[in-house]
């Protein structure tokens, strides 16, 4: 008779579950604690492939004395993927690494940078003219080291138009 008093429509549903008994509760608690333990162990293990030290060499490089870059010159440093310019206001350098997906943009005689991979085009000052690149080409931090050589840090970007007065 007690069955009649229950909600029979609910019981017939395939999702109907009896309220958990004590035994079920202990079993479920055991299973879920095992799941939690293994989950925590898994997440902990996944910390391993996230490097805390990167294998790259120092991003701060000396590129010679300022005399190497006379006024009006444009110098390509392919190893550093860098173009060094010297105009009326001073020295500056632009990275040729395309801000879209990391290909190397080539610079043609008119000063325009063109990326071969997906067609981004940048103005001589690095601004995006066309294509999918989300930001201008990076301007790279420059400075003078105590021995008088020019220093660039390829990991540090500076705002467009920042120049090193010489």
């Amino acid at each position: 008779m007690s069955k009649l008093s229950r909600n029979s429509a609910l019981e017939e549903s395939p999702r109907f579950q009896e309220p958990a008994s004590r035994r079920d509760f202990l079993g479920l608690a055991a299973i879920w604690s095992a799941v939690a333990a293994f989950g925590a162990a898994l997440i902990g293990s996944l910390r391993l492939p996230m490097p805390s030290v990167f294998p790259e060499s120092n991003s701060r490089v000396k590129i010679g004395h300022p005399e190497r870059y006379p006024k009006g010159s444009v110098t390509h440093l392919p190893e550093l993927r860098l173009w060094v310019f010297h105009d009326a206001k001073g020295l500056y350098s632009i990275s040729s690494i395309c801000t879209h997906l990391g290909c190397i943009a080539g610079r043609s005689a008119d000063g325009i940078f063109r990326c071969p991979c997906h067609g981004s085009i940048f103005a001589p000052d690095g601004k995006v003219l066309q294509g999918p690149a989300p930001t201008p080409l990076h301007w790279i931090a420059m400075g003078l080291s105590p021995d008088g050589q020019l220093l660039v840090d390829t990991a540090i970007n500076v705002p467009l138009g920042t120049r090193l007065p010489v």
């Binding site: 492939p49 996230m50 490097p51 990167f54 294998p55 790259e56």
Partner: peptide
């Protein structure tokens, strides 16, 4: 990217 490359560029890692 760091997880995939173990670095900031494509190299030995």
């Amino acid at each position: 990217k760091e997880l995939l490359l173990g670095a900031h560029y494509v190299g030995q890692e």
